[in-house]
């Protein structure tokens, strides 16, 4: 296994709406590594997650990140009228997969989170917990090198949480960064690499 970092940010600063959320800090994840960013509400966890994905501007002296990143956002949005399977097929194709390959990736992602039976169900028919599973399956789709999970335990039942723990434990090729507030069930998912506070950052 290569030890070259999958994610590396040196001198990273985080701001939102002109307000500095985190002073310069460093963050590095290597293959197989899991990291947990803890922070209270409003400390900039989700902002950090989106910025690391390239969806928000990010200031860093050195920035290395893979081309493809899987994101399980805190408030996932879905096209509710579409079927789970065809939706994930499209996402796999967006990453360059051919039809057969896309279907295989979708099947694998759905199977990981026990969603195989929901393949042909419209997303709008899924419960909140099942949508969270779909959110995770979407992040895992195509096995991206870097996974960023924003409060992944949200709405999961114990079985879902166990599935999440299992999948995190068996993930060896890529790195995973979890962001969550302390004490919501994510503390045991990964070692803490960063603790965000409203007025700054403490690693």
């Amino acid at each position: 296994m290569s030890s070259a970092p999958i994610l590396r940010c040196d001198g990273l600063a985080l701001a939102r709406g002109g307000k500095l959320l985190a002073e310069e800090f460093n963050l590095e994840l290597v293959p197989g590594q899991r990291g947990l960013v803890l922070g209270a509400n409003g400390s900039g966890k989700s902002t950090l997650a989106l910025a690391l994905c390239g969806l928000l501007p990010l200031k860093a002296r050195v920035l290395e990140r893979p081309r493809r990143i899987g994101l399980a956002s805190q408030e996932p949005e879905f096209p509710l009228a579409r079927r789970c399977g065809e939706y994930l097929d499209e996402l796999a194709a967006l990453a360059g997969a051919r039809a057969v390959e896309a279907r295989a990736q979708t099947d694998q992602a759905l199977a990981r989170f026990d969603l195989t039976s929901a393949r042909s169900r419209p997303i709008g028919e899924l419960s909140r917990g099942w949508r969270q599973r779909l959110n995770l399956a979407r992040a895992w789709l195509g096995d991206p090198l870097l996974l960023i999970l924003d409060e992944p335990q949200t709405a999961l039942d114990p079985a879902g949480l166990a599935t999440l723990e299992r999948e995190l434990a068996t993930r060896t090729a890529g790195a995973t960064l979890i962001v969550a507030p302390p004490g919501v069930g994510c503390d045991s998912l990964a070692p803490v690499v960063l603790r965000l506070r409203a007025a700054g950052v403490k690693a």
Binding site: G70, S73, E77, P79, L91, L94, G96
Partner: peptide, 22 residues
Amino acid sequence: DARRRDGLEIEEALRDPAGSLA
């Protein structure tokens, strides 16, 4: 508009860095 509402633009940005397929 609908795809933006449904979060598909975010997924496009994450999965298709060249931004040409969608």
